[in-house]
Nucleic acid binder design. Structure first.
Length: 151
DNA sequence: GCCAACGTTGGC
DNA sequence: GCCAACGTTGGC
């Protein structure tokens, strides 16, 4: 079982959206590295920090869990979707995604807070210029952050 | 709104 | 296969 961090913009699809939906298909990811994480490494039961990006207070705001393994991303075949990909064929889908289910909201652990902890300075999210929307989280880092939330 | 960092595209 | 140009991300 692995741990992850997934980014989303709260105005587009934030923690309150998934709290209401209960589960959601994590479609629209158009980055090969992120796709490969979902396709090759994510398993049902893996947990992920839900991170709000591009907003007033960027940071971790909740926990979600993988509820379905990678499957073809429906938005790539939908001509009306902003994620439509004309070069992807049904017989050979280019984009895949997992489903996530809501676990809980957590107290905000802001980006600024994360930066303060020496233990966390290797996290992908804290590296300069990192834009990857799905990144692995080390089990030690996970535990450390969960403790921060409880404090 | 700015801009640095990054991924992708396409001409050669 | 190189690399400049472009578009996007995301913190500030």
């Amino acid at each position: 079982m692995r741990y992850w961090l997934i980014k989303s913009e709260p105005t587009t699809y934030g923690i309150d959206h998934i709290a209401k939906d209960k589960t959601t298909s994590w479609g629209g990811v158009r980055n090969y590295q992120a796709r490969n994480f979902m396709r090759d490494q994510m398993k049902v039961g893996d947990q992920a920090f839900f991170y709000h990006s591009n907003c007033e207070e960027p940071g971790i705001v909740g926990i979600v869990e993988v509820s379905a393994a990678a499957h073809p991303d429906e938005t790539q075949f939908d001509k009306k979707s902003p994620y439509y990909d004309a070069s992807s064929k049904r017989e050979e889908p280019r984009w895949l995604n997992v489903d996530f289910k809501f676990v809980k909201k957590t107290p905000l652990v802001s980006l600024n807070e994360l930066k303060k902890h020496k233990k966390l300075d290797r996290m992908r999210i804290l590296q300069k210029g990192n834009r990857l929307s799905i990144t692995p989280v080390d089990p030690d880092e996970w535990k450390y952050i969960v403790k921060l939330m409880a404090a």
